[in-house]
Amino acid sequence: MIIAIILIAIFLFGIFFYNSLVGKKNQVTNAFSAIDVMLKKRFDLIPNLVEVVKQYTNYESETLSKIVELRTKVAAGNISDAEKAQIDSQLSSSVKGLMVNVENYPDLKANTNFINLQTTWTESEEQIAAARRTYNAAVTDYNNSIMMFPGNLFAGALNFHPVPVLETAAEERRNISAKELFNN
């Protein structure tokens, strides 16, 4: 009788444990797709941004063509998630540079469309940051479940493996140097 109860308890625990791992893994996937949605929203801003900037500046053509090129790569669609993250990081720093240079074009700075795009861009930056933080929280929760006892005993056998957290790209992690920005 006691053995039967123990076996049922172990069985129920197994179901609960397995379901909770599946739930946590799905949360990781879900959190990643949230980043993807946010990135797409940001990539969609690029054509408008380029159009507006083009009207007012003749000097940023190099930066603009680099931005367009990066955006085209994303639009092609056949790139991996890692590549997408890398392109986003490059895009981010190019647009950041562009925003700094806008100081030289008072007309552009005062343009309503540009101001709107600038605020939407800032908004999307923080939304992406929030999505990345959500992803990392989901990954940490999932990794803790499979790396801590008793999860570590069964997770491998059930084909659950740790997922790496997203780290800030080296380029973004570097402190912004005002000197460098103004020497460009």
Binding site: A31, E126, A129, A130, A131, T134, A137
Partner: peptide
């Protein structure tokens, strides 16, 4: 919404 809460609580 997990993402939105983090968007507010930076």
């Amino acid at each position: 919404d997990q993402v939105e809460s983090r968007y507010l609580l930076t």
